[in-house]
Each structure stands twice: as C-alpha cells, then as structure tokens.
Design a binder for these strands. Structure first.
Lengths: 343, 343
DNA sequence: AGTTTTGAGCGAACCGTTTCGCAATTTTGG
DNA sequence: CCAAAATTGCGAAACGGTTCGCTCAAAACT
C-alpha cells in the first residue's frame, strides 16, 4: 500500500540507483533532486527501514536487557537511554530479566534473533559467560551499572567502592562510630559498595559487629526489614548506610513507622536520588549517580562501536563516573561543638 | 556470516521452496525432513526474521507507548506485557511519552516507521486524534488503562468510576462523613475515579467542601503535598481516598512524617497494590487492579487483531475488569459498637 | 583542440525469505 | 489396471531497498 522507491522511479523516470543515492545523501543534479523531492512529497514516500535493513544488515534497533523493569532505578535509566537512543534514530527492544539468570540468557537469544545492532545490558548474571553468543555474532555490547567478574565488556557506571567509601566517611567525620550497612551483596555494585563501607570503617579503626552488616537481595524489603531490626537492637547503631535506591526507600519507611526519627535518633545516608529528595523530610544525605550522563555515555560508546565495524580488539572501555554527595539533614553531629538536637 | 536457507539448499539438494515450506510447518517427505533437520543442526541455521518480515510484511514487533516509563504502575504493566508478548513470540518496542502529548505524537510516527505489527498504548493524550496515522496504515491498536474521550479503540482497563465508588462506599459504611479525595483530574482514569467518589458522596448525602477535593497531575507529590495540607486543616477530614499509586505513596509518606497515624487519626483508602502492601503497616485498604489479567487480555486482543487481517469494523471491544478491595486496618470505625482504638 | 579528470546516472545483481503456479509422483477408488 | 484426486517438490518471481561497475557527458587541464 505505501509508496515504494519504484513508484518514485516511475514518477520521475530516474533509476532506482539514483533515487537510492539521493535518499542516502549522495549527490544528484539539482533538477533531479527537485523531481525526486516533488515525487516523495506527492506520494508520501517513506523509506522502508526493514527492507533497507535487509541489505545493509542493520535494524537501527538496540536491545536493552535489564534485571527488573519494575525497579525505579531501571525505569529511570530506561528513560534516559530511550531519549538518547532516539537522538540517534534508534529504537530499543527491552527485555526484562525478572531478576532471573536463566531468563536473561534466553532474552539474549531472543534479541540476537531480532538482529539488534547493539546491546545495552544491566545484567543479573554475575558471570558474563552467557554473553558468549553475542560475542560470536559480533554484536557490540555495553554494560551499564554492573559488570561481570569474569568477562570484559565496555562498561559505564560509577566507582561503587569509592562511592560507598566517601559516603561512610561523611558519617565517620561527623563522629559516628556505630555505623551499620544495609546493602545487596548479590550483584556487582552491591558487593563493591559493601567493600567501600568496610574499607572506610577499617581505615577509621571502627569495628563492624556481625549484626551491623545487613546483606541480602537488592529490594525494598531488604531495607525495610533490616532497618526495623537495627532499630530494635540492644546496641542500636547511631548511623546506617543504605546501599541502593529500593533499600533506602524501605529503610526510610521503617524509620517513619517507628517512634524514632532522623537525625535525632538515627543518622542515615542513602543511595540514588530518584524521587526521595522531592518527598522526604528532613532531607536525607544521598549518594547521587549521574544517571543522565551515564546513560548518554553508554549510548555514545555503543553507537561508536556500531559505527566502526571492528570489534574493540583489546581496547575495551570502562568509564566510571564520580558520584555527588547531596547534603541533607539526616546526619547528627556527634563530635564538635554544635548541638545536633537543634536541627 | 550466519547460514542462510540457501546453505541448507546446497547441503540437502532440495529447493528453497521446500525448505521454506518445512520451516513454516508444511508437509515434507520424512526423508527430506530428516535431511533438512540434519542440515539445520549442522549449520546452526536460524531463520532471519527480518528477511522473512520483508515478504510477510510482519515484524513480530509490537509498539508500546506509555505515558511515563518511570512510573511504577507502568513498570508493572510492562513487566506483564513483556512476558505475555514473549509467549506469542513477539518483542516490544517501548516508547516513553515523558507525559508529553507532543512527544507521544512523534513516538507514534517513530513506531509506525519501524513497522510494528500492533500498538499497545497507555496514552497521555486525552484525545485520540493523534492516532490517525495508525488508523490510516491499518495497524491494530489496543488501549490500556486509559481511553480517549473522542475516538474509539479496543480498550482494556477497569471501571474507574465504579472502583472509586466502591472504595469510598467502604469509608462511608464505616461511618465516615468528612471524606477527602486526592486524585488526578487530568487523564482518563483519574477523572472517572473522581466521579465515582463524588457519586458515592452524593448518594450518601455527604457534602464535599472545596478544600476536600484535591486535584492535580498524577504524581507522588500530588499525594504528599495535599495530604500534608489536609492534615493541617482546621476541619480535618476523618478519611481520605487516594486515587492512584503514586499519589497513595505520597500520601502515606506525608502521614508518616506527621504526628498523626492511621487508622487512629485518619483513615485512608489507597489505589493500586504494587509494593505498598509488602511494606506499609498497618496495612492499608487498597483498590487492586488485576494487572496481570488486564495485560494478558490486552495482548490477547491485540494478537487477535493482528491475526485477522480485517480491521475491527464496528466491533470494537471494551473490556473492563472489576477491582478487588483488599482489606486492611487503615479505616477507623466511627459507627457501630467496636472500639476502633483497639486496632 | 585534444586528452584527462570528475561527476552523475544506469542496469543488474543481491540481501534472505515466502509464495504462486505448475509438474511430477503417489494414493485412492471404481 | 487405469483415471482422478491428492500430495509433494520445484523454479521463478516477488518483497523494497542498496551497491558495484560501467557508460557518458561536462569540466578541467595541457
């Protein structure tokens, strides 16, 4: 039904080759250019990208695999990724891994069959073995937020160890010594955030009792449940570092439901400034990832890889951004002269 | 690089037509079937869906347009939609409308260019005029959760008016008279939920002072800000009905941060059981949409439409599900004998 | 003015499938 | 046992573009 390049040919009397050349930005005589443009206008012609794809072997589609599409963090990423991809004329095929490694493996197959030009992955698998098929076919891959422990791919994220280290450092500088942590220890980022926490504690010569180390699966409940337990502890911590968005929100809920409040009874430092900052009072200290820049960079790299046919050889890129510590009023000052209860 | 049907032809000595027939489930002599299967196995052949698409004029791709990919409600929908679509061998191209009507209009163009086989839309536009191009091309469209006021399309959602009506009715039956509402009045569902609220109030002969009617744009802040204001009112309402997920969460936050608590000081009835129920205590009463069924149904209808070439003519389907009122402990009983403070 | 260079247009082949109409073979039935 | 019917296989033409190598005319040199 829609007009094809052949209709343009009939209308203008030019050859397919010439018209195709015009469509792809080649040089055409002014007279012919006019002819073609008039015909396109009249017939409402639009190039059929899938036909073009067949011969150029491109789909202008990027596959995006995420560990859980329901996660607010992921939603936020997707938001930026989508916008950036569109700027490049690309669409994206999203696959939700349901936090399941097996599903993720199948999703890869699916996307490969769809002939995506590239892959953007926030993985659930810790190992990159399952990405083998992508490597074999030569589809460029960029990892976001999480890397593998065994396979190298282009990567964009933050320095998680450093991020946590800096955050905990702030707590320490405010005189806190009994500092607990609630974070995931399952996937990439969580593990390094835990490390950063431990390092800061060790450096300051602070001990970390078993019950202050609250680990589990990245989730809302993780924060909620563990914060409840921490608050009920005999030897309650004076501060808690929360290692990701969902967990932070859960922790906040737990405090809100208790008799206690921050910064008076407990100091908190959270992660990822998604919507909390617009809602929670008193404002909490937050380690903020530059989501927009990260996504833009990831897409940039991917576009680069797609453009230059060559596989990256041994020049894999790992871009880590710094985080921003957004100040809040959720930390009580336990040293120095100020009276913390005043705030 | 990957094997093509022609490689199979060379290996087996059969014709393209026969092999194609086999691939599409046609009948082939047992001997040939074996031959083909062996060749496929050996060459790791997989059909190139985009080449197939060129001739069948199908992409096995569905376009999904959502008003805001960051919304938890949307994320949840996407989760189910994705799973269901995959069962049918379809992938989905997601477009985020950024809550912007203009962007949504452009997204449609984009998806149409990508030749999606069908469209699933949770729209931001109130009017369906912008869907004209889809109609013209004959791409089937199914609306989810929100319908247009002026154009008819297949639709799957809930009876919003009824849902709100039933929820508010519960509050009334518990003896509440000063009942406030916080909901969106911008898009489809919000409008009808407001109507349901008003109807229930009117029926019960209850008045709705201006300051009890809190309307605005579907958001977290809407609930947060307005709940704060309601709680600070001279003539504070005894109950509040919250009209959607984000708003409910905001409202809960606001109460949690105040000196007050439910059900003692204020009764609340929320909407959409996404993650709250797993976290908020005491449990709140919730109007629960059957997300999974809705998504499955929407996909079903779409598949149906895609299958039968014919445009639906005048037989447009509108499927509305009932909601489930999930009981909680967030409503104080103001009539009857029970002592509410006991719980 | 003659030769080289440059630039645009063209025909045909190709990308990897499906499908149509027909030929060949097998099965059915009288 | 032969004609009719049913089944399977085949060649070729699509689908809607891109691209390669060639021709030809105009522009740029000696």
């Amino acid at each position: 039904m829609p007009a094809t390049i052949r209709d343009i040919k009939n209308k203008t009397g030019l050859s397919l080759a010439t018209i195709s050349k015009y469509l792809n930005g080649g040089n055409v005589l002014p007279r012919n250019r006019q002819l073609i443009e008039a015909a396109i206008e009249e017939l409402h012609y639009e190039v059929n990208e899938i036909a073009r794809g067949l011969v150029t072997n491109q789909t202008k589609l990027v596959g995006v695999m995420v560990y859980d599409i329901e996660s607010l963090f992921v939603g936020n990423m997707l938001h930026y990724i989508g916008a950036e991809l569109r700027r490049h004329g690309y669409g994206f095929l999203i696959c939700d891994s349901f936090n399941d490694e097996e599903v993720e493996t199948q999703n890869l197959q699916f996307l490969l069959k769809k002939k995506v030009d590239g892959l953007l992955v926030i993985p659930v698998n810790r190992s990159g073995k399952f990405m083998e098929p992508a490597k074999k076919v030569g589809v460029p891959v960029v990892l976001l937020d999480r890397a593998f422990y065994d396979e190298e791919f282009d990567f964009v994220g933050i320095d998680n160890r450093m991020a946590a280290y800096r955050a905990v450092k702030v707590l320490i500088e405010n005189g806190h010594e009994r500092i607990a942590v609630i974070t995931s220890n399952v996937e990439y980022s969580g593990i390094y955030r835990l490390e950063g926490y431990l390092e800061a504690m060790k450096e300051a010569g602070l001990s970390v009792p078993e019950e202050y180390r609250r680990l589990g699966k990245h989730s809302f409940e993780l924060g909620y449940k563990n914060m409840k337990e921490l608050l009920a502890l005999q030897e309650r911590p004076t501060a808690v570092f929360l290692g990701n968005y969902e967990t932070t929100l859960g922790g906040i809920m737990a405090v809100n439901e208790s008799e206690l409040s921050w910064p008076k009874d407990i100091s908190i430092f959270g992660f990822d400034d998604l919507i909390m900052s617009r809602v929670v009072r008193p404002k909490i200290w937050i380690a903020r990832q530059p989501m927009e820049q990260m996504c833009a960079k990831a897409v940039d790299i991917l576009m680069e890889r797609i453009g230059s046919k060559q596989t990256p050889e041994e020049q894999i890129m790992k871009v880590t951004f710094g985080i921003q510590l957004r100040e809040g009023e959720s930390i009580r000052r336990l040293n120095g002269r100020e009276n913390p209860s005043g705030d």
